[in-house]
Nucleic acid binder design. Structure first.
Lengths: 244, 244
DNA sequence: AAAACGCTTCGCCGCCTGACGAACTGATCC
DNA sequence: GGATCAGTTCGTCAGGCGGCGAAGCGTTTT
């Protein structure tokens, strides 16, 4: 039997309900650890208030803290937290655009971003669509399954699929994208694809957020390997927008 | 392109963060519509405060209101809301047991409950385990697929699978159970199984909550059709516990 | 050793929000 | 038509919580 007691979703939600804490959590959806001062800046509060918020989030089990010298790096405690945040994002109302900067951030994120450790945004769903169309993934009863052809292509691209399958993590999960409202590829495969794209320099992280930028190398790579033609960048957004 | 703007997960969470509202939402996870007074009682507040809370929840898109005479029935707006609530429950801290009554409610819910429209709790995961073991469901890459054998047995039991497959809803989804931390069957099939169990009188709803009670008929039914031997009821909890 | 830096703790202030009593609307029952 | 009941609106009050300035702690740098 479990530890008993009913889940207290109110206190968990209260943890996320504060705008500053929510901003920190979404910033950490980029999948990388960030120091306290960075998170304070992104949330728009002073260091001391950020510190209090971060303590609460660690206490509530949403964040993990890791000390490194005089820095303390914070990151999401586990993939379940990311799933939960994404399921909230799917139903959450859209914040009204208040500034040109916000609009830039929003379009950059809608274009390409990470969802903890896999690709999301237009890039994520277009890639998924393409893999299904080209028969690398097969759709069955609402799931995606890797085909023999898909296994071949992805192995040739450099993924070690047998290693992924040995892990306890599901190979493929469909994750509903909040900006596109269509599914992209999550699970172990989704993480591996992202990792490979970053390693190959096809994508680079936009500093301080979840946004991704497609490089010219990536443009050619996606076309040659997956037959996918993408815009390299929406004009002018790439450098200024430090996506939330 | 979408309506633009970033998802405001803070304000959505704030909607759920209040204990009274959270209690109402979890009560509605039973899958049936409830009038305002019932929800007020379950949340432990007066009618007028409940009314204010319910207005907020409807406004936030989480609940649907339906007038019927002088009653107003409230229910979850859509299955996505239920998914979101369950993903919160999975990570939420467990409320400490404060009374004998709370303990009864907790054990009743852990035993068998609905998760919006499918079976959860020990019953839900045991049934899923059994279907996999007996080859009605096949596991592939972390998904469940219906086998020919499964199709046969479930059709013989009275499910119209072809109708379910025509719908846009995924046939099978694995839903992580917060009390067992193992998956049970969600999706169109999960809903159909629950519906059939209620129609056959195998299970009855414990009034005013999400709890389910296994009937003697159900005991025999699960044994004969699925080879599953279950306790009819944890002693003494069935009648008093009006599960939250 | 002193200075700089990253982060946290403490104390106080101001606002937001949930709670109820009372009064009102509209449907149902006899 | 009067009584009853479900539900909502209004006004008021109190508790909780996030915000920052100031001060403290430990690490790194010169």
């Amino acid at each position: 039997m479990e530890s008993g007691g009913l889940p207290d979703i109110a206190s968990l939600s209260a943890l996320i309900a504060d705008p500053s804490r929510a901003a920190m959590l979404t910033a950490l959806l980029g999948g990388i650890a960030l120091p306290a001062t960075d998170l304070a800046r992104q949330a728009g509060v002073t260091r001391q208030t950020a510190s209090a918020h971060l303590a609460q989030l660690v206490d509530g089990g949403l964040l993990r803290r890791e000390a490194q010298g005089r820095h303390r790096y914070y990151s999401l405690a586990n993939p379940d937290v990311a799933d939960m945040l994404e399921s909230l994002a799917l139903l959450a109302p859209r914040a009204p655009i208040r500034s040109l900067r916000m609009s830039h951030v929003a379009t950059a994120l809608a274009h390409a971003r990470t969802c903890y450790d896999h690709l999301a945004g237009m890039l994520g769903v277009t890639l998924a669509d393409r893999l299904v169309q080209d028969g690398l993934l097969a759709e069955a009863e609402g799931h995606w399954l890797l085909t023999a052809h898909g296994r071949e292509v992805l192995t040739a691209w450099g993924l070690d699929l047998s290693r992924l399958e040995r892990g306890k993590r599901p190979l493929i999960r469909r994750c509903l994208d909040w900006s596109e409202r269509r599914p992209h590829i999550a699970g172990a495969l989704g993480a591996a694809i992202t990792e490979r794209c970053l390693a190959l320099g096809w994508l680079v992280r936009i500093p301080g957020g979840r946004g991704l930028r497609l490089t010219p190398v990536g443009h050619d790579g996606f076309r040659e390997v997956f037959g996918l033609t993408l815009d390299v960048e929406a004009p002018g957004t790439g450098h200024t927008a430090s996506a939330v």
